[in-house]
Structure formats: C-alpha cells, structure tokens
Simulated scan of single mutants.
Amino acid sequence: MTQLTLSQDILTGITNLGNQLNLSVNELLEQISQGNLTVINTEELEDLLDVRDAIIAETDPDNQERISWEDVKQDLGL
C-alpha cells in the first residue's frame, strides 16, 4: 500500500464529495481510478448541457417555425 499525504482542506473536500455519493474516501478514489466515476470541469459540463438543451429544443415539434435572421436583427434593433 502506498501512502498519500493530503492537506486537511483537500481531505475535507474529498470526504464531503464521497459523502454526497454515499462513498468512503477510499471507495470514491477507487471508483475514479477504475473509470466508474469521472471528474469533469464544471464549465465544460455547462457547455455540454447547453448543447443537449439546444438539441432538445430543435427536435421539439413546437419549435419548428423558422425565423429569418433579418427578423431577429429587426427585433433586436440592429
């Protein structure tokens, strides 16, 4: 077994994250190392969710009416 030294702040953060997922620190790190959990940058996640929402909106039958770019510019006062 290899020892790892963490600051108290980092250990607290990892412990809190594990608690949110109902996992011990060891289980949390094991799940990450096995590829069962992924760490993702929150900005990247927001971008992915925005793309998902746009796809959902485009496929909604109620959103099939197309608006010309000229109408959009006029509505914006451009």
Rank of each mutant, 00 (worst) to 15 (best):
residue 72 V to C: 10
residue 51 V to R: 10
residue 4 L to D: 00
residue 53 D to T: 07
residue 27 E to Q: 15
residue 3 Q to M: 07
residue 44 E to I: 03
residue 56 I to Y: 13
residue 74 Q to P: 09
residue 6 L to A: 01
residue 1 M to C: 10
residue 68 S to I: 06
residue 40 I to T: 09
residue 37 L to N: 00
residue 72 V to K: 09
residue 7 S to A: 08
residue 36 N to C: 05
residue 30 E to F: 09
residue 47 D to V: 04
residue 1 M to L: 10
residue 55 I to F: 09
residue 70 E to R: 15
residue 60 D to V: 04
residue 5 T to F: 00
residue 44 E to P: 00
residue 65 E to T: 06
residue 69 W to M: 13
residue 52 R to H: 11
residue 66 R to N: 03
residue 72 V to M: 13
residue 25 V to G: 06
residue 5 T to Q: 04
residue 76 L to H: 12
residue 71 D to V: 11
residue 49 L to C: 11
residue 22 N to C: 13
residue 11 L to C: 01
residue 78 L to K: 14
residue 31 Q to V: 04
residue 33 S to Y: 08
residue 51 V to K: 09
residue 29 L to W: 01
residue 22 N to T: 15
residue 64 Q to G: 05
residue 22 N to W: 11
residue 68 S to V: 02
residue 74 Q to W: 07
residue 6 L to V: 03
residue 59 T to G: 01
residue 59 T to Q: 07
residue 54 A to C: 11
residue 78 L to C: 13
residue 11 L to V: 02
residue 20 Q to I: 10
residue 34 Q to G: 10
residue 76 L to V: 14
residue 28 L to A: 04
residue 60 D to Y: 09
residue 69 W to Y: 14
residue 17 L to Q: 06
residue 47 D to Q: 07
residue 12 T to A: 02
residue 39 V to T: 02
residue 25 V to P: 05
residue 12 T to W: 00
residue 58 E to M: 11
residue 49 L to V: 09
residue 45 L to W: 01
residue 46 E to Y: 02
residue 71 D to L: 12
residue 54 A to I: 15
residue 46 E to S: 01
